[in-house]
């Protein structure tokens, strides 16, 4: 079968995307763990290390542009490469969310507040789990699995709503802590947005496999700064 070069380079590219994905997964889980431990030093390191995720994303983007320019991909190959450009952007933004969580840890310093760590960790592990399986569905081009994962977004939304109400009640009861709990709210918000972006990846996966663009998550238009 001809086009061995293109096929081999695409495989390599997908490996790099998985690597970028695992960097994001790691950063997300660490960010929440570091918040629980209130480890300012580790938070500062994680904040800095977001640059590695950005660098990886640009390296992949560059590789894709070179492939498009030199190999003239068509049809499925072209959809895959275009979708991968989108997907690495989503991953990079997820990295920003983890960085945003580290920033909250830094800003909270040693403020004496009750952070709902258990719920945040559940959100993080659910979002990371979705991401992990979402990227597998992407490289395996499994539109059914991708659609199923997109549906799991509701679990993260429920957790977010739960944390949100809990935090609002806490703030009302103790207005002096509004600033700090507002920061904690951002942590939950970032994790919720992360799951939304996994949904976007799943949409792209369906697009690559079928050529049809499905909007699975129509409430995803609002853009907010995760940092």
């Amino acid at each position: 079968m001809p086009r061995d070069t293109l096929t081999r380079q695409i495989h390599h590219l997908l490996d790099e995307v998985l690597l970028l994905g695992s960097m994001v997964e790691q950063a997300t889980l660490s960010a929440v763990d570091i918040l629980r431990q209130r480890d300012l030093k580790a938070a500062a390191t994680l904040y800095e290390n977001d640059q590695l995720i950005n660098d990886k994303r640009f390296a992949i983007e560059n590789a894709i542009l070179i492939l498009i320019a030199t190999q003239q991909p068509m049809a499925h190959d072209l959809r895959l490469l275009a979708a991968t450009l989108e997907i690495i952007t989503e991953l990079e933004r997820m990295g920003d969310y983890a960085k945003g969580i580290a920033k909250v840890t830094l800003q909270l310093k040693d403020a004496d507040i009750n952070i709902p760590n258990r719920d945040l960790e559940r959100m993080a592990s659910q979002a990371v789990n979705m991401l992990h399986r979402g990227l597998s569905a992407f490289v395996n081009e499994d539109p059914n699995e991708a659609s199923a994962i997109a549906g799991e977004d509701a679990v993260v939304d429920d957790l977010y709503n739960h944390i949100y109400h809990h935090l609002v009640e806490t703030m009302i009861a103790n207005p002096a802590t509004i600033d700090q709990y507002n920061q904690v709210m951002w942590v939950a918000h970032n994790l919720e947005r992360m799951a939304d972006r996994v949904t976007n990846i799943c949409e792209r996966t369906v697009f690559i496999a079928t050529g049809d663009m499905l909007e699975m998550d129509t409430t995803d238009d609002e853009e907010s700064d995760g940092e």
């Binding site: 079968m1 001809p2 086009r3 293109l6 991909p73 068509m74 049809a75 499925h76 190959d77």
Partner: peptide, 11 residues
């Protein structure tokens, strides 16, 4: 068959 041809994977 169109896919295979235009992606260069014909034959």
């Amino acid at each position: 068959r169109t896919e295979d041809y235009i992606t260069g994977r014909f034959g």
